[in-house]
Computed example of a mutant assay.
Amino acid sequence: MTPPRRRLAVAAATLTLAVLTTACGALGNTVDCNTAASEASKIASEWSTAVTKNASDTDAIGTASQTAADKTKELAGKYDGEVASALNDLAAGFDSMKGGDLSSVSDFSGKVNGFTSKITAACS
């Protein structure tokens, strides 16, 4: 695995793990919150797979990022308040990578904790 591929794989795995471990399943939270977290996790996983698979193809990274942003925006449209805001922030993160350059993917992976913290806070 080339160094850029390794970096992308680590960034993608970090994003997927962070979204998967978002604590929206606590007792007393609404099913909608669980659904939002589950769907966000699915979108992030699909993005992660696409980016890792096409790590050297900036067009493919850009397309995967745009698709993830669109899906996340659509998901955010189904919710309101803090959940919608957290999902819109995640969508903006995906949007920031639509150019497909490796530095934007690295920047985004550094911001993942902030996005997942917002989703977690919205769900608690």
Rank of each mutant, 00 (worst) to 15 (best):
V19I: 11
S106Y: 11
A9T: 15
R5C: 07
S109G: 11
T14H: 14
A91C: 06
T52Y: 00
A121K: 15
Q66H: 08
S117K: 14
I61C: 07
I43T: 07
S103C: 06
G99I: 00
G100C: 07
A122F: 12
T16I: 12
S117F: 10
R6V: 14
Y79Q: 10
A91R: 04
A9R: 13
A23Q: 15
L15E: 14
T49R: 14
E46R: 03
T35H: 11
T14N: 15
V19S: 14
A44W: 03
A86H: 05
T35I: 13
A92Q: 13
L102S: 06
S109H: 08
S104C: 06
S103H: 11
A86M: 06
N88L: 06
S106G: 08
A92K: 14
G100N: 05
C24P: 03
D107A: 15
M97D: 03
A91N: 03
T22D: 11
C123I: 04
S38Q: 12
N113F: 13
R5T: 04
A36Y: 05
S106I: 12
G25M: 07
K53E: 07
L87P: 04
D57F: 02
K42Y: 09
T35W: 08
V51R: 02
D57N: 08
D80F: 00
T2L: 06
K118F: 03
A86N: 04
K42W: 08
K42A: 15
T2K: 02
L102M: 05
K78G: 00
S38F: 11
I43R: 05
P4N: 13
S124F: 09
A68M: 01
K42Q: 13
S41Q: 11
G110P: 01
S124V: 14
S41A: 15
C24S: 06
S48E: 02
L15I: 10
A11E: 13
M1H: 10
N113T: 15
P4R: 11
E46I: 05
P4A: 14
V112H: 09
A55V: 00
E39D: 10
G100T: 07
D57M: 03
T21L: 15
V51D: 00
Q66D: 09
T35F: 10
T72K: 06
C123K: 04
T49I: 14
Q66V: 01
A40Q: 10
T63W: 00
G28L: 01
V105N: 09
I61L: 09
T30Y: 06
S56C: 04
A13G: 12
T120L: 11
W47D: 01
T2N: 09
G93T: 03
D32V: 08
S45W: 02
E74R: 11
A68H: 01
S65R: 01
A9V: 12
V112Q: 10
